[in-house]
Design a protein around this nucleic acid. Structure first.
Length: 359
DNA sequence: AAGCCGGGGAT
DNA sequence: ATCCCAGGCTT
């Protein structure tokens, strides 16, 4: 490979310059920085998976305040923890968070596994998170490989191997590990991620003020904006969700969503999904609900405006329809009646918290 | 190896 | 609209 000699030549230089930048120019401050409590490291890392620091920060503070130790999280009810996670997305993280907290607290005497291999066995903990906890909490020399690291290394060394290919992942993992100074793995891992977030950013990187500029292969070739290379592009699909906010006896029908789809474990109103968009005509919605209603009638039916939410892989378009029932629905519908007070303790997807009419 | 899983900010 | 974010799990 053409960049092989370049890597060998610049390997010590890269690490030296990065640590120097970290010491003198890195002002990035975060509450978990310098933390060595594996519980807090773990919690922050799970929250930050595919999530911006600015977005995860408030959630971290809320969780630490309510669940200061892993035992507090382990003993909490699922519903309360999901309520704390509400709005953060990727809800399987929350389910795995609970499973791991309970395993650590109840099956492992409150201790997190003290090394990379042990951490990797935890639910929701993959190669990145295991390396982060191992290096930050236990000083183990494991290089983290996240979006920042991919970007920094691909640009500095001019690597155009796709980061989402198997060979790319292997290559970057080896390179990252080779660059890691074994005497301060935590500080280095923190530094390279800070550097990627603050200087070597995805868009508009601060090359003119970059301490690595003279050694950066992508800068020399003028291809900073083209790296890193990704080969897979996501294709989106559009779905039409019609939510019925059905009221009876001052209570509302709700259910918990199952697996195999978005928003797993979160709650929702009576949902009828359509393949095509629907107009506002109220008769359309009365007909849609017929299979659930039996002899019940709808009063005060109101059809809301069309709303939409963009997810990573899906576009959700829909409406909220409110109505009162003359008699309750059959229990076989799978929906249960809950009071507004009970509903306020449940977690709902953003699509509902953002667009659903007030109770 | 490929597909799926959220929500938000920047461009 | 598109990209990307301190990725991981399932098939």
């Amino acid at each position: 490979m053409k960049y092989f000699s370049n890597i060998l030549m610049n390997l010590p230089e890269f690490t030296k310059n990065l640590l120097s930048w970290n010491q003198f120019s890195n002002s990035r401050q975060m509450p978990w920085k310098g933390e060595t409590d594996p519980y807090k490291i773990w919690l922050s890392e799970i929250i930050l998976q595919q999530t911006r620091v600015e977005q995860g920060l408030a959630y971290y503070e809320k969780f630490i305040s309510r669940f200061p130790k892993v035992q507090d999280l382990a003993m909490a009810q699922d519903a309360e923890v999901f309520k704390y996670w509400e709005g953060l997305g990727y809800y399987s993280r929350c389910r795995n968070l609970l499973a791991t907290a309970r395993w650590v607290a109840f099956e492992n005497k409150g201790h997190f596994p003290p090394d990379y291999e042990g951490l990797l066995k935890l639910k929701g903990v993959g190669p990145y998170t295991a390396a982060a906890i191992a290096s930050f909490a236990f000083g183990e020399p494991r290089a983290v490989l996240d979006g920042n690291v991919f970007r920094v290394l691909s640009r500095y060394f001019g690597i155009n191997t796709p980061i989402d290919s198997l060979t790319g992942k292997k290559l970057y993992a080896q390179l990252a590990q080779a660059l890691l100074p074994t005497d301060q793995p935590g500080a280095y891992n923190q530094a390279i991620m800070d550097f990627g977030a603050v200087v070597c950013k995805p868009q508009a990187p601060l090359c003119s003020a970059c301490v690595q500029q003279t050694d950066c292969e992508a800068y020399r070739l003028g291809v900073v904006g083209d790296l890193p290379v990704k080969e897979k592009s996501i294709k989106k699909r559009t779905r039409y969700f019609y939510y019925f906010l059905l009221k009876w006896n001052n209570q509302y029908y709700v259910r918990q969503r199952g697996g195999g789809d978005i928003w797993q474990d979160l709650h929702e109103w009576v949902l009828i999904e359509q393949a095509e968009p629907l107009a506002t005509d109220p008769s359309i919605y009365r007909n849609l609900l017929k299979k659930y209603l039996g002899t019940a009638k709808l009063k005060q039916l109101r059809v809301g405006e069309e709303v939409r939410q963009q997810l990573s892989h899906q576009t959700i378009i829909g409406r909220f329809i409110t109505a009162e029932l003359t008699i309750p629905l059959s229990t076989e519908t799978g929906y249960q009646l809950l009071s507004p007070d009970a509903l306020s303790k449940l977690a709902f997807p953003r699509f509902i918290t953002a667009f659903s009419p007030r109770l």
